[in-house]
Design a protein around this nucleic acid. Sequence first.
RNA 1: GGUCCCAUCGUCUAACGGUUAGGACAGAUGGUUUUCAAUCAUCUAAUCGGGGUUCGAUUCCCCGUGGGACCGCCA
Length: 463
Amino acid sequence: MAFICRFAPSPTGPLHIGGVRTALFNWLLAKKNKGKFYLRIEDTDKERSKDEFKKQIIESLSWVGIKHDDKEFIQSKNINKHKEIAEELLKKGFAYKCYCSEEEIKEQKAKCKKQGIPYVYNRKWRDHKDLKIPKDIKPVIRFKSKTSGNTIIKDLVQGDINVSNSIIEDFVILRQDGSPTYQLSATVDDHSMKISHVIRGDDHKINTFKQKQIYEAMKWDIPQFAHIPLIHSEKGSKLSKRDKSSTIDDYVKIGVLPDALRNYLLRLGWAYKDKEIFSLDESIKLFDLNGVGKSPSKLDMSRILSLNEHYIKNMDEKILFGFLKKYAQNYKKSISSSKEETIIKSLNFLKNKAKTLDDIYQNSQYILNEDIKIAAEDIKLIDANSKKIIDEFLGEFKNMSSPNKEDLEKLVNSLINKHKTNFKGIGQPLRIALVGSRFGPGIYNVILSLTKDEVVKRISKIN
RNA sequence: GGUCCCAUCGUCUAACGGUUAGGACAGAUGGUUUUCAAUCAUCUAAUCGGGGUUCGAUUCCCCGUGGGACCGCCA
C-alpha cells in the first residue's frame, strides 16, 4: 500500500511548533514507508492568508529538515474543481441551497444559547417544500448530513471514535460568494492528491465526520485518519501564536540546532522504549503511529536545551562553526573571517560549556573582541600581589618561543610554589586579564587560543 | 452547556494482567576540577479517587473527579 501523506497548514499566521510536529510525523511516516509527503497551503481564506506566512511555513519546515515532495500545492488554485464537486453534490441530491439570512442564523444561535442547548442548523431548507425563495438572498450550499444512526471513525492514534450522526449539522460547502469552504476543499484535494493517511491535530477530529460523508457521497476511497494530541505551552494552556517560544524562529534565535528540535519534537508525544536520542535515519526507521500517545503534552524548555547541548557536544566542529557563523550573522555581529580559524580550533573546549549557539557566541567574545572590558567587581579581584605574580608570568611567557601546555603548566606550578599560593591565585587574575571575567574557559585553553602578542598585550594592560 | 477524547514522578515517557513501577530532563547531595560549566556517583519523586472483573491490576469494565478538543459562510 502506498503511503501518501500531507501537511496542510493555512497561511493565516506563523506556524507554531505544534504544526511542525504534525508535519514531522507525516513526513516520517511517508519516508519510513517510501511514500510521498506533500505540502498543501490552504489559502482559501483570502482575507487572512498572507504570503509572508506561507514563506515562514516553508522555511520553518525546511529548517528542521522536512522537505516536501514536488512543489507545494496551493489550494486556491484548485478552487474551480471544488466548485464543480459542490455542483455535483447538489445535482445528486447530497447538498442543497440554503436561503437563510445571516440574521436568521444568528437568531437561532442566540435562541439555542438561551435554552442551553447546542446549536445545530435546523435544516430549514433541506427539503424546501413550500418555502418561497427570497429574491434578495444569495444561497449557500449545505451538505445533507445523515440525521440518524452513528458513525465510527477508526483512528490510528485514538482508536474507534463513535459519534451520533445527529450532532453533525448540514455544514456549508459553498459560501454565499460561491467560494468553497474548508470541509469541501480539504476533502476534494485530499482525494485528488490520493492522500492515503491524514495525520493532523486533534482539533480536526470532528471534521472527519463531515468529510467522511463527502467521500461516501462521491464514492471516493476514504483515507486513514490519525489525530494526534495537541501541544500545550509550558504553563499548560493552549499554544497560542502570541506565546514566546511557540514558533521555530523563537528557537532559532536563541541558538537551538535543527537536529535538537527535531529530536525534541519527535519525543514529544511519542516514544520508542527508553531511547532518547534519535538520528534522522533512526527516527525514520523507528517512527510509527502506535507509539504516539493520546494525551496532550507540555513544552519543556529545559529539555530542549539539554538535547541541544547534546547535539552541540557531538557535532563535528567544522559543521558546528557553520551554524555558529550563520547564527552570529543573523542575530549578533558577523564573525570576521580573520577569526574563523581560531574559533574553529577553540570549539572543542568552547562547546563543552554551551547549551546553545548563543552560549558559544558569548564564550568566544574574548576571541572576537580584542578590546576586552573588565567588570568593576572583577578588576577588584586583582590586588597588588596578583599583579606581581602575573607580571612575573608575563616575563617568562615572553621568553617562550612557542607556548604549549606543558611549558605553561611548568611555569604556573613554579609560580605557585614560589609565591606560596594556589592555582586560583594565578589562574583568576590571568583569566580576568585575558577574558575580562572571572568566568570562562580553562586558562591554558585561553592562552593557547590567542596569539602570543595578544596575550602579552592583554596582560600588560593590567599593570 | 452539549458532544467527543484523555489521565503513570514537577515535565516527556516505558511497562500492551504478574517488574522492588524503568529511563530521560529538571531538582538535591557528594567526588573530581582551575573559575563558571562539564563530568562521575548517589538520592528525592508517580500509577487521580471509588467501585467491580481476576489467583493477581498501572494495564480490562463502570462511576466520579480533573484536563483537553470541537460546537464559524476560519482552517
